Computed example of a mutant assay.
Amino acid sequence: MRAATIDRAGAEAAGTLSVDSRGDALVVRLAGAWTLETALAVDAALRELAERQVRGATFDATAVTRLDSAGAWAIRRTAGRLERRGVSVEVAGLGEGLRAIFDKAALHDPTAAVEPPPRWSLLDQLEALGRRSSEGLRTGRSLLGLLGQVVVALGRVVLRPTRLRGTATVAQIEATGVTALPIVGLLCFLVGVVLAYMGALQLARFGAAVLTVNLVGISVLREIGILLTAIIVAGRSGSAFAAQIGTMKVNQEVDALETMGLSVVDVLVLPRVVALVIVLPALTVFADVAGLAGGAVICLFQLDLSTGQFLSQLAAGVTIWSFLVGLIKAPFFAVVIALVGCHNGLAVSGSAESVGRQTTRAVVESIFLVIVLNAIFAIAFAEIGI
């Protein structure tokens, strides 16, 4: 039996390499801190070791105290060269944390066959469609379950109003409503301007430019005001709900609430739902006013209408139902946005990546459901003659 030891002198807890020959097998004992400095110091010895004519080699890393990617790669490189020559290699003794670093230093095998990209056949597409449909059904069932919990929580609040967390609800009203006024007003005003300008250009060809007032009034009050407001709130507040609750889930604050015997629905979900149900109708009224103001600017300056003429034409062209139709939709849209945001926040699995993924899903799903619900309302109101 013979042994060779290579030490990196002058450094505390330096990495060492000790090689014992046992017949046609090698036992390589590693100790100390295997970092970049150690890898550089023992590089020549590792290269010489990789050329040994043996049948087996065991790397004993029980005494390794530190390991970085450079040290792990140096060991991996030596073991890989031995394996390519048909030598049986085993790396033993690494702790759980060091083993994770060592595994990440796996060498890329350039000779490995590259798996061809999957070919999309009709069956593959049907399978993917079925999988997504099944996932959508599971998500819908989970949303309905959360809606049921919210309804039960609202019933308890009706019986005992003090159960509603007033401070949290007011804070959510401010965050989702008051701070959203500038962006909602600006966007709806600009949309009203564009709608009136483009409508006036087309209607002027038929000598009916004055009907631009009717076009703006009906469009803004029935559809544009509520739909644009809901989309803005979904992108702004729905994503905030998912990110806030998701971050609490990552920090185990949700688990702490459950441990203390508090209801997650009562503490986190219900205040957000109630706040958005209160806020969205108010934002819709504000959006309607802003959209009509944008249309009025174009009508006053491009069509040479006076303020009195604009208001008279608006009163003749729209009815109270034109305003109420948009307002009726607001609470339903609010419930959908709040539930989807909270549901995706509670679905976070515990990582920062999951927070981002669920936040994105919250925005996409809430906007999709708002548009679908708006289409259902439009058909329903048309069928009953409103």
Results as ranks from 00 to 15, higher is better:
V157P: 00
V157C: 15
V158D: 10
V158G: 11
V158L: 13
V158M: 11
L159T: 14
L164M: 09
R165T: 12
T169A: 03
T169Y: 01
V170M: 11
V170I: 11
A171R: 04
A171K: 04
A171E: 00
Q172A: 00
Q172T: 00
Q172V: 00
I173P: 01
I173R: 02
A175Q: 11
T176V: 08
G177N: 10
V178Q: 11
V178I: 04
A180S: 14
A180T: 10
A180G: 13
V184G: 01
V184R: 05
G185D: 04
L187W: 05
L187S: 12
C188L: 06
C188S: 05
F189K: 01
F189Y: 03
L190V: 03
L190K: 06
L190T: 04
L190C: 08
G192W: 00
G192D: 02
V193C: 00
V193E: 02
V194H: 09
V194P: 13
V194D: 10
L195T: 03
A200V: 12
L201D: 12
Q202S: 11
Q202D: 12
L203M: 02
A204M: 08
F206H: 13
F206W: 08
G207W: 11
G207Y: 13
A208I: 00
A209L: 09
A209V: 15
V210N: 14
V210C: 14
V213W: 00
N214V: 11
L215M: 09
L215D: 02
V216Y: 01
G217T: 06
S219M: 09
S219C: 12
S219A: 15
S219H: 10
V220A: 11
V220W: 07
V220P: 08
V220K: 07
L221C: 09
L221Q: 10
R222P: 14
R222E: 01
E223Y: 14
E223F: 13
G225A: 03
I226N: 02
L227T: 15
T229H: 09
T229Y: 11
A230I: 07
A230C: 11
A230S: 14
I232M: 07
A234S: 02
G235R: 13
G235K: 12
S239A: 14
A240N: 15
A240P: 11
A242C: 01
A242K: 02
A242R: 01
Q244P: 14
Q244R: 15
G246S: 08
G246A: 10
T247S: 12
K249G: 06
K249S: 06
V250G: 05
V250A: 06
V250C: 08
N251L: 12
E253S: 10
E253Q: 13
D255V: 07
D255I: 05
A256F: 05
L257C: 11
E258P: 08
E258K: 12
T259N: 08
M260H: 05
M260G: 05
G261K: 05
V264Y: 08
V265I: 03
D266L: 04
L268Y: 02
L268I: 13
V269P: 13
L270C: 04
R272F: 09
R272W: 13
